[in-house]
Design a protein around this nucleic acid. Structure first.
Length: 223
DNA sequence: GCGACAG
DNA sequence: ATCTTGTCGC
């Protein structure tokens, strides 16, 4: 990464935050090179927090693909240093996720985030932003749509008609989820991988796992 | 100005 | 995101 972490994750104001997002947008990589092997290791991350507590708990569960067997899990807790503002989520959770992943990202072939990839007004959702920082393949898995129009299952960018991601219904239970590439992966490959993890639930257990562990940390861990 | 708005 | 048990339904 050319810019230091301090600039990529700790902007002093929203203007600087936008500048960082525009910087990353100009350097997006959305192809599948190098392609993932038949068998690879991936992580799922999520952050758990209490409404009015400044402390947050992040967890990363590690799995083997395609067996989907859990290999490990890691946790990290710290204080939020940025408020939650739509389109700026990475500046709130990113610092914690960076600390959580900095020592293990190199061992992960892919990382799945709870949030958007390029389904974002500047195409730099939290999955894309973190993928750029670690130069690792990432996928954004969101429960709600943040930006774009859904046409025949495809999330389209109203600016130029580009396919940003897909609206897919996994399991006949709940509503759809929104999948988009984060970094170094294509929209189609991202959806293909997520669909291969479907197990009948709206949120595949493999993806839910990180949320479970993050919550377990918050309830049991200190702080 | 108004409405929308990941976690 | 979180507060929360049981309960209605496939």
């Amino acid at each position: 990464m050319s810019l230091p972490i301090s600039d990529l994750l700790y902007p002093k104001n929203l203007k600087q935050a936008r500048e960082v997002q525009r910087y990353i947008r100009e350097r997006l990589i959305l192809d599948d090179e190098p392609p993932l092997k038949d068998t690879f290791v991936f992580g799922v991350v999520d952050v758990s927090a209490n409404m009015y507590s400044p402390y947050a708990y992040a967890a990363c569960t590690v799995f083997e693909y395609p067996s989907l067997k859990m290999l490990d899990w890691y946790g990290y807790s710290g204080k939020y240093v940025f408020p939650y503002i739509p389109t700026y989520l990475v500046f709130r959770e990113g610092p914690l996720l960076y600390e959580l992943l900095k020592d293990i990202a190199g061992d992960l072939d892919l990382i799945i985030f709870d949030g958007q990839g390029i389904i974002h007004p500047l195409r730099v959702g939290i999955a894309t932003h973190m993928g750029f920082i670690f130069d690792t393949k990432t996928i954004g898995f969101a429960k709600k749509l943040l930006y774009g129009n859904v046409v025949d299952g495809k999330v389209i960018d109203p600016e130029d008609g580009m396919v940003l991601g897909y609206e897919v219904k996994l399991g006949k239970r709940g509503g759809p989820v929104y999948i988009s590439p984060g970094y170094r992966i294509s929209p189609e490959r991202a959806v293909e991988i997520i669909k291969s993890m479907a197990d009948g639930y709206k949120i595949p257990k493999v993806i839910r796992s990180a949320h479970i562990y993050a919550n377990k940390l918050r309830k049991e861990g200190g702080l």
